[in-house]
Write a protein that binds this DNA or RNA. Sequence first.
DNA 1: GTTTTAACTTAACAGTGTTAAGCATTTTCG
DNA 2: CGAAAATGCTTAACACTGTTAAGTTAAAAC
Lengths: 206, 206
Amino acid sequence: MGIKERREKAKENLRQEIFDAASELFAKEGIANVSMRKIAEKIEYSPTTIYLYFKDKTTLLHEICEETFVKLAYEVEKIKETADDPLEILRGGMRAYIEFGLKHPNHYEVVFITPLDSYIEKTPNFEYTFEDSTGKVAFEKLVESVVRCIEAGAIKNNDVELISQTLWAGMHGLTSLLIGHKYFPFAEKERLIESMIDTMIKGLQD
Amino acid sequence: MGIKERREKAKENLRQEIFDAASELFAKEGIANVSMRKIAEKIEYSPTTIYLYFKDKTTLLHEICEETFVKLAYEVEKIKETADDPLEILRGGMRAYIEFGLKHPNHYEVVFITPLDSYIEKTPNFEYTFEDSTGKVAFEKLVESVVRCIEAGAIKNNDVELISQTLWAGMHGLTSLLIGHKYFPFAEKERLIESMIDTMIKGLQD
DNA sequence: GTTTTAACTTAACAGTGTTAAGCATTTTCG
DNA sequence: CGAAAATGCTTAACACTGTTAAGTTAAAAC
């Protein structure tokens, strides 16, 4: 049945249109300046139409962010080819993470800065879980890098999860501060990134 | 003129009433569940009355947070008396910071997690600046501790601001992740705090 | 050609922060 | 004392927000 397919495709088209419009608006204006009505206006449909394709605003935003975070996972993966030294790869991955966050501040904000918990508690059927998110894929690549470093004896043989989470917290701390507190008199960005990576890596060596 | 004084006192009383009501509501329910109308209901005045005493919601919330952060500065200061070793004092200060954030998650969220920049850009006359906030006092105590460590040769003699900001980012990263992502399968809290502090301190040694 | 279904819209609900205008009550001053 | 001014608070409204229930229109199915 070709007709049914075409109709489904048309439906997918509108879904994609909504997605793209929201994505662009969101990347440009940030979460605070994106409303369902604005998205609707952009695609010239009524606001309620969006709900025929996306469960709610939060879900739509997270779907948009998922798409972006695929790139992070890709970029972290790509680092592996640039060096042989596992420690250098870990360094590169950390740098890629931080720079990714600074490059996509709005996406980073939604995924990692905005506390999800309050939303989860309110909407029991929220389908988003970290367990099957792209964020987890990226995180697993970090864990992998850590494992390689331990195997090579480059960092201390401690609890892998603990080390990975500590590294993540360090990276996230710098990224989120630089995104959210632009008016704080920070030291130069490049030096801060360098300092954070160096400090953490050195701190994890025997 | 005793009459004028009494009237000013009465006015201060209502201001304090509003402040206390908002403070309690905010600490209990979090920023997402505090509205001007809810505060008004609690003190049994009309919502607009609040605006006679506070410029807007953001200002009110920041004033509340300021009060709380005085305690952080105090607690970090107190650490100095518990040890002689400057490195131990720095450690204690870092621990105090993280635990303070976990103890007052809503306050921490408003001050450090929620990006202020978008608000600042929208309201040009926003009187809050980090420069004269209690947050800065607390931060300066961290810087002080770092200076002491450098003087004692306990950590490397590098740019103090850079080191302090790196430390802050590390502390903030862990604190904000633990506050905002309770559903992430983190390692045990105590171990994570220990790991973060140890890693950073060790990373800053020669 | 009638019925069913799909796609979309209109209207509305319940809430948000915030402001302008109005109403008493109290204080000030002629 | 009585008119004028100022204080303290409220009512009503604006301009938004996310979201849902009900209604409309057009295409597909039988």
